[in-house]
Design a protein around this nucleic acid. Structure first.
Ligand SMILES: [Mn+2]
Ligand SMILES: [Mn+2]
Ligand SMILES: [Zn+2]
Ligand SMILES: [Zn+2]
Lengths: 140, 140
DNA sequence: ATTGCAGATGCAATACTATTGCATGAAGAG
DNA sequence: CTCTTCATGCAATAGTATTGCATCTGCAAT
């Protein structure tokens, strides 16, 4: 996903294609892993760009509402890899160290979508999150 | 679930059965809905009991690690209804208003557990959380 | 029942995270 | 280019969580 595709995402969203929004999308794309607003700021600072933390909070909230990114239970943000897909996205998260693995399971995603609909839930980006202890954090 | 059962939970956990821990369990049980640490404090204060917020933070973190309660993505805590059951527990959460509905779906819980095991995850209380927009918050 | 101690609590200080109001600045339509 | 609207930066504030340390208490041993 190139920087110009990020601009396309913004155009389609109805949001103005500002430098700050493109930088936030670039950062999330480059980091490849869920990141907090301050993680994003640090990433950008290291690369010589600056976006004010308050702006990052505002931008990410908008992106979340548009389904451009997912906010995980840890508060970290993950770029939605397939925004055109209406189906659910799956994450496995360690509640100890916070590490996150994205998974793809059609069957589970179908079931989760059904459950959401049963309860009259709707979202442009339904999110399934399974929380447990990762191998490193499992005391056994 | 009575107060004496709460004491049993504590005995089995290896934690001392202090007044504060019993009060936190009582509060979560009485509230019937996921609550933040400060929600718990306010509930207790209204009933004439006081447990210091810092203590509630410490207690709930221990309970979470023991699988006695679940910490949802909103940060709110839900008493685990079936601590003896090793299977996963499911929650549907609105990312706008934060309302939570617990659901029970054997099939989805089985699938989620399988996915967790595939990734060598383990937990005394695996948690499935589906996030979307509830009927009240759906703009459509 | 008394004692002793590891573990638990309360408090204050601190750190971290998120939100709001307002003045200034930039995107993009015309 | 001009204008309007939306977006950003900054400062202040609010909300949430953690830590160190002194004191206290559950509970096991005697
Ligand atoms: Mn998505
Ligand atoms: Mn459980
Ligand atoms: Zn871990
Ligand atoms: Zn809602």
């Amino acid at each position: 996903m190139s920087s110009c595709q990020h601009t396309t995402i913004l155009e389609r969203s109805g949001l103005r294609a500002t430098m700050q929004r493109r930088l936030v999308l670039d950062a999330l794309h480059q980091m490849q892993t869920p990141a907090s607003p301050y993680d994003i700021e640090h990433h950008l600072t290291k690369r010589g760009s600056t976006v004010h933390p308050v702006t990052i909070y505002r931008i990410t909230k908008q992106f979340e509402n548009l389904g451009i990114l997912h906010r995980l239970g840890s508060g970290r943000l993950s770029l939605c890899k397939h925004p055109e897909t209406e189906g659910a996205h799956g994450y496995l998260r360690c509640r100890d160290c916070g590490s996150v693995t994205e998974f793809q399971n059609e069957h589970l995603q179908r079931l989760a979508t059904d459950i959401a609909e049963e309860h009259r839930y709707h979202s442009p980006a339904p999110l399934i999150e399974i929380t447990g202890l990762c191998p490193s954090c499992d005391p056994s």
